[in-house]
Simulated assay, not measured.
Amino acid sequence: MDVTASLHGLIGGVLIGLSAIWLMATLGRIAGISGILSGLLAGGSQGDSAWRLTFLLGLISGPLILILSGSDLGNVVESPGKVVGEPVGGVGLMLLAGLLVGVGTGIGGGCTSGHGVCGLARLSTRSIVATLTFLLVAMLTVYLVRHVIGGGA
């Protein structure tokens, strides 16, 4: 067991939880990324847009700081020189997958952060069902890709 990776995961999880609590305590909002992004794109009031934009910029600033500093902390690819690897199925498939995720968050009324972090913490029945659905579909997808189609490692 890699203790360092486990500690990174634990620290990251605690920071995600604290940010969700902070957003709920200060603004009364759920830290659901799809809802935050869709609210920003819908063009709400100026004050509403400011916190949404700040939240989303905070999401991408961490990885950008790691890339610019040359740190391999948080590296998820096998090559030490890269922070993020090439998309396995190509850019077109990645864009299609992103579109399907966006459609799915609309149909499901939220995303993994909203349902999985905030909804589960509130013991929301809807979020429990949604999160179980996310997990089961993800497991089925990995099984199909790795064992039926044979495209994974």
Rank of each mutant, 00 (worst) to 15 (best):
D2V: 06
G12W: 09
L15G: 05
L18A: 15
S19R: 09
I21M: 07
I21C: 02
L23M: 15
L23S: 08
M24V: 07
A25Y: 00
T26Y: 00
G28Q: 10
R29D: 04
A31I: 08
G32Y: 07
I33L: 11
I36R: 04
I36L: 12
I36H: 04
G43P: 03
G44K: 11
Q46L: 13
G47S: 14
W51H: 11
L53N: 07
L53P: 05
F55L: 10
F55H: 10
L56A: 02
L59I: 14
L59Y: 02
I60C: 10
S61N: 01
P63C: 11
L64C: 11
I67S: 00
G70N: 08
S71A: 13
D72P: 00
L73T: 12
G74M: 07
G74R: 04
G74I: 08
E78V: 10
S79G: 01
P80G: 02
V83I: 13
G85C: 04
G85P: 01
V88E: 10
L93V: 13
L95P: 00
G98Q: 09
G104I: 07
T105V: 14
I107C: 05
G108Q: 03
G109Y: 04
G109S: 10
G110I: 06
G110V: 07
G110P: 03
C111D: 08
G114V: 07
G116I: 02
V117P: 01
V117N: 04
L120E: 10
L123W: 04
L123K: 09
T125M: 13
T125W: 14
R126L: 08
I128K: 12
I128E: 00
L132P: 01
L135Y: 06
V137A: 14
M139K: 08
V142L: 13
V142G: 00
V142C: 03
Y143Q: 02
V145C: 03
V148G: 06
V148R: 09
V148N: 06
I149S: 03
I149D: 03
G152L: 14
G152K: 01
